[in-house]
Design a protein around this nucleic acid. Structure first.
Lengths: 343, 343
DNA sequence: CTGAAAGCGCTAACAA
DNA sequence: TTGTTAGCGCTTTCAG
C-alpha cells in the first residue's frame, strides 16, 4: 500500500524555492522565465518525476478536454478498427487522444458511453448509431459548440454531420455485376437487425438493380444474419430452397466470411458471389472474391476533418458526406448462371 | 459561436433553491436527501441538461480517473482489436473506459502516449511495448500503486505483470508439424524489426523444432517482413533460391496474409505452409490454412483480470502469464515435401 | 522576471 | 435533512 501521493506543482515549486506559478510558466512556456530558474525547475520536475495533472488544468482553463469520444459497435470488427485508425491519424497532430467504447449496437450501452464521454468533456463526439437510439439529448451539446459526427449510419433526432458509404449505389453496382453475368435469382444476406440503415440501403440497391433488369423481386431470396455463423446458416437455407439462387450477395464483411466458409464447406463452386465490404485474402480464394469495397480510411479522415473544421468555428449547416465504394472484380461474380436461366 | 457555458452544479442548485452540496448528494447517492428535494433536483438536472464534470470530481476526490490507458501498435490490426475488445468486456462492469492510442511500434510515440495517459491519471496502464522502448520511467507510478501490464511482449526496465502467447512452444509445434510431413527445408518469415520479442521467440521455436529432428539450420531460409507486401516479396525471394524451401512458416498474421496472397498469385500449390496466428477465411482457402492460433480474448481477459486484482490491492510479485496457443490443422501443412528430400 | 490571491467545478468535513 | 467552509491541482489576474 505504498500509496505515496504523486508530486504536484507545489511540490516542485517548494523543491526549487519558487512559486507554483513560475513552475507553471516553465511547463507551459507561458510568460518569461530566467534561464537560471527554468533549468532548476526542469531539474526538479525530472527528479520528482512530476507529471502535470491534466484534469486539474482542464478544470481551470474551462475548455474541453483534448480527447475525442468514439462509440463503435465492436472494437473487434476490422472495418471499425480501420476507421478508428484513420481518425487517430488525422487528429493526432492536434493532440487529441481517442476515448473508445463499443456499444454492441445496444442503444442503452451507446447512451451510457456518450454520457460518460460528455461527462469527460470530450472535444469531439463520434458515434456509430445503434438501431433504436435517439440522439436528441445531444442537441444542447451540439448547440454549445461540441462537434458531433455520425459514422456509417445517420443518427436520429439530431441534425449534424454524418459520413456514410455509398451503400445503395454500391450494392446496386455489385448486384448489376451478377446480373450482367446472367444471374436472375440472386440471394441477399443482409445485416441484422433489419432496421439497420446499411441493411435497408443495400437492399434498396439490390432491388434497384433487379428493377433495372426487369427481374421480379422474390422475397424468399432475402435473408439476414448477425454474424459469420448466422450467415453460413442463411447460405444453407437459400441454397436448399426449391428454386435456389444461382448467386449470392453479402450485405457486409461478417456475412461475407460466413458465406465463403459455407460455400467452401459444401463445395459449392457453382454459386456466384459478390460481397459488400472487402475482406482479407479475398484475392487468394478460388475463385477470388469480387467485392464492393468500402473505404474505411477515407470515412475516418472525412469524419475527423469535418469535426476539426467545426472545432475551428465552421458553422455551416450539417452535411452528409458519402464516401464512394468501389467494385473490385476478382472473379467470384462471374461463375456462369445455371443453364435454366430464362431469356 | 453560441458557446453558452455548460450548466454546473451551482446552476442546478440555484434553479432549485438549494445548496450545491445537496445536488451533489442526490447525484452521488451520498448522504440523506428528502424525496421532495431529490425530485426537484432531478427535474432541474433534466431541464438544464446538466452533466456532472467528471474531471472536477476526480480532482477533488483525488483518486485515479476511471479510465484504462491502452497503447497498441496499430488500431487497425485485428489481433489487437480482439485483445482490446476482450479488455473492454472485462473491465466494463467496473466502470472503466478505454483510452487508446497506437504507437506504430515507435518508442517515441509510445512514450508520448503513456505520458498523456499518466497525465490523465488513468487507473490502469496497458502497453504493447515497442522495440527500443525503455519503461523505467514507469517505476514510480507502479510503486505508487498504478497497475501496469505489458501485452504481447515483455517490457524493458520495469518489473511488472505481462501477458504473452506461448510463442516459442507454439512455433515449435507448428514447425514440427511441417517436419512430420517430410519437410526439411522450411522458410521462416518473421516480424520486423528482428529484435521484436515475438520474432525472436518464434524463431527460437523454429530452431528447436529443427534441432529436435536433426535438421541443420540454414540462415538463408530466414527472412522477415513488416507487412503483407513485404511478406509477399520475401516469399518470392525464398522460392527463387537455388535450393528453395518446400515449406514456409509465417511469423504473424500480416505475414501470413502476404504469403497466402503470393502463393496464390504464383499458383504455387506445392508449397506447404503453416502460420502463427489465425486469419479469417483460413478454412476456406485451398488447401485450408493450418495455423498456430493465438487466443486474443484470453490475452485481454488475463491482462484485465491481473490489473483489476492489482487495483484491489494484490501486492504479490510481478508475474508473466503465458497464454497457450493451439495448432489448428486444416491441411496446408500437409502438402508433400519435394521428392529430393534426404533421409 | 516573479509572486500572491482568487477561482475553475466539485466534494470532504464539519456544522446547524 | 440541509448548508457552509475549505481545498483538490492548476491557471488567471493583477501586483510587485
Amino acid at each position: 500500500m505504498a500509496a505515496n501521493r504523486r508530486p504536484t506543482l507545489a511540490d516542485v515549486a517548494r523543491e526549487v524555492g519558487v512559486s507554483a506559478k513560475t513552475v507553471s510558466r516553465v511547463l507551459n512556456e507561458d510568460g518569461p522565465v530566467s534561464t537560471q530558474t527554468r533549468e532548476q525547475v526542469l531539474a526538479a520536475v525530472a527528479k520528482l518525476g512530476f507529471q502535470p495533472n491534466l484534469m486539474a488544468r482542464n478544470i481551470r482553463v474551462g475548455g474541453p478536454d483534448t480527447t475525442i469520444g468514439l462509440v463503435i459497435p465492436d472494437l473487434g470488427n476490422p472495418f471499425f478498427g480501420a476507421v478508428a485508425r484513420s481518425i487517430e491519424d488525422t487528429v493526432r497532430e492536434r493532440g487529441l487522444t481517442l476515448l473508445m467504447g463499443s456499444s454492441a449496437d445496444d442503444p442503452d450501452r451507446e447512451r451510457a458511453l456518450t454520457d460518460k464521454f460528455l461527462a469527460r468533456r470530450v472535444s469531439i463526439l463520434m458515434v456509430v448509431p445503434s438501431v433504436g437510439a435517439d440522439h436528441s439529448h445531444l442537441k444542447p451539446h451540439r448547440a454549445a459548440g461540441l462537434p458531433v459526427v455520425f459514422l456509417d449510419r445517420p443518427g436520429v433526432g439530431l441534425a449534424t454531420d454524418s459520413v456514410v458509404s455509398s451503400n445503395r449505389d454500391g450494392a446496386q453496382e455489385g448486384v448489376a455485376h451478377l446480373i450482367a453475368h446472367g444471374h436472375r435469382r440472386i440471394g441477399f444476406i443482409g445485416d441484422l437487425p433489419t432496421k439497420l440503415h446499411t441493411r435497408r440501403e443495400r437492399l434498396a440497391g439490390y432491388r434497384a438493380a433487379l428493377q433495372e433488369a426487369d427481374i421480379p423481386y422474390d422475397r424468399a431470396l432475402i435473408t439476414n444474419a448477425h454474424d459469420q455463423h448466422g450467415a453460413a446458416a442463411a447460405t444453407s437455407h437459400l441454397l436448399g430452397l426449391p428454386e435456389p439462387p444461382t448467386a449470392l450477395f453479402a450485405g457486409n464483411n461478417m456475412v461475407a466470411l460466413g458465406i465463403v466458409a459455407q460455400l467452401s464447406r459444401s463445395r459449392r463452386k457453382d454459386v456466384a458471389f459478390v460481397a459488400f465490404d472487402d475482406v482479407p485474402l479475398a484475392e487468394a480464394l478460388e475463385p477470388a472474391l469480387t467485392v464492393v469495397a468500402q473505404d474505411p480510411e477515407e470515412i475516418g479522415r472525412a469524419a475527423a476533418d469535418t469535426a476539426l473544421a467545426r472545432l475551428d468555428g465552421d458553422r455551416t449547416r450539417a452535411r452528409t458526406i458519402t464516401i464512394p465504394t468501389r467494385l473490385i472484380v476478382r472473379g467470384s461474380g462471374e461463375r456462369p448462371a445455371a443453364a435454366k436461366q430464362e431469356a
